[in-house]
Design a protein around this nucleic acid. Sequence first.
DNA 1: TATTGTTATACTCTATAACTATA
DNA 2: TATAGTTATAGAGTATAACAATA
Lengths: 180, 180
Amino acid sequence: MAHPGPAERPDCAHPGPAPHEPLLRAPTYLVAELTKLIRRESAGALPCADAAGRMRGPAVLVLACVAAEGPMSQRQVSERLRMDPADVVSLVDVLEERGYVERHRDPADRRRYRLDVTEDGRLFLARRREAGLRLNQRLFAPLTPEEMEQFTDMIVRVLAHHDPRFTEHGPSETGPEDAA
Amino acid sequence: MAHPGPAERPDCAHPGPAPHEPLLRAPTYLVAELTKLIRRESAGALPCADAAGRMRGPAVLVLACVAAEGPMSQRQVSERLRMDPADVVSLVDVLEERGYVERHRDPADRRRYRLDVTEDGRLFLARRREAGLRLNQRLFAPLTPEEMEQFTDMIVRVLAHHDPRFTEHGPSETGPEDAA
DNA sequence: TATTGTTATACTCTATAACTATA
DNA sequence: TATAGTTATAGAGTATAACAATA
């Protein structure tokens, strides 16, 4: 075929450039597209350290959480990361199998585990973090460092407005209702 | 009051409002959290116009695309929205079933369809768009209009750097490699 | 285009076991 | 003790979205 252009649209010469205008300014659409871009660019760019290719986003998140906040229970992980407790189970399974965390029963409350990061876990996390920095540089190359700062600040502010996890000083009493 | 706030634990150093610092500044993590927030806030806030609850994100996207850029083929839709052609099929099925678009064979090339939006389709889109605006106001309440503008601009710039669909004047020859 | 199937993620529901509080 | 209520984990199952293989 000669060209894949629209047959009967003389005013639209180019085959597939930009998505339609109204969407181009819809923040939720843009965030969704950005997420898809991140997914595409992340593929293969981050160490997964697993023949089966596990150790993806959520698993790394759990590992980072335990590494940063010290020994904690699975319940606490699920609260910090706002993940479903049911999903944390299998993620910790993977981490434990890889030797990145260890499950010990908490003697104070034997219902819960005490998750401990291993040295291997910290090593993996360090490698992953470095790869993440390179990825970010590539991903957000068009933004100046100041803009990058503004960008993350704005997201944190939006998140904090709806989610007490992102407030500076712990869960506050003010919520989304204030400005709604 | 159903705040899923972290449980107060006297034996834990700081019972833990905010996720750990390194993550708090990682843009890709923040974007992922923002996406989850959008999902949560969107639930029930947008008209789905379907007993089965279809007409979700992707279907509306396809409808908006056809509505904004005029009659086009499914292949063109998949290119504009960077969706898998296989997924466009079932989305158009839903839209057709709802009476929002019509499939006509393109007389110029009978292999492809010519998708046309119906009046019902435009009506639904208008309602949906209005609900979307209200949702955005609630979602991004902490940002000033200027910041909102900067925010969307920055995302578009980042997207354009990796994806020719988002360049102003159609697919250009310059790509991510230029500044990488 | 269409069909079929796979995978990742997020969420729902239920079950079991261990804890807490109280009579 | 006994009883009831709560919490931590586990497991099965569902829904959406992205994607691969093939007709």
